[in-house]
């Protein structure tokens, strides 16, 4: 059973064994507005927790996406190239960005669960 974690930078990380799938939260896509381009990292790249990992371009602006945990990029969502709007339509599903082979399970400890993230979003508005 995968477990989903959330970061204060509004990324989600779905952990299934040693693999983590990363995207931006529904709240984040709503704040960004219409997504028109996603720049994804190269497969094989190793990222550290907090590294710039991808860039989301909305009509308005470019936003950096940070790695919520470190690891090696093993897959990216190529479907976003033709359909970046998937990030708006299904941010926490089809709009995923990358899969990581996670480096260190201890890095998950300071991430939030869904309930804590919802409270975090509320506290920010």
């Amino acid at each position: 059973m995968p477990t989903t974690y959330y970061s204060e930078d509004h990324e989600w990380l779905r952990v299934d064994g040693a693999t983590g799938t990363v995207g931006i939260t529904d709240h984040a896509q709503e704040q960004l507005g219409d997504v028109v381009f996603v720049e994804l990292p190269e497969i094989g790249r190793t990222v550290l927790k907090g590294d710039d990992m991808a860039v989301v371009e909305s009509v308005k602006a470019a936003s950096e996406i940070y790695a919520p945990a470190g690891g090696e990029v093993i897959e990216t969502n190529g479907a976003l190239e033709d359909n970046p709007a998937a990030v708006n339509e299904d941010a926490e599903g089809d709009g995923w960005f990358v899969r990581l082979k996670l480096a260190d399970p201890a890095e998950l400890e300071d991430l939030m669960d869904a309930e804590a993230y919802a409270a975090f979003v509320d506290s920010q508005s």
Partner: peptide, 8 residues
């Protein structure tokens, strides 16, 4: 631009 990435 020829690709899809915007330039700001």
């Amino acid at each position: 631009l020829e690709g899809r990435a915007p330039a700001r």
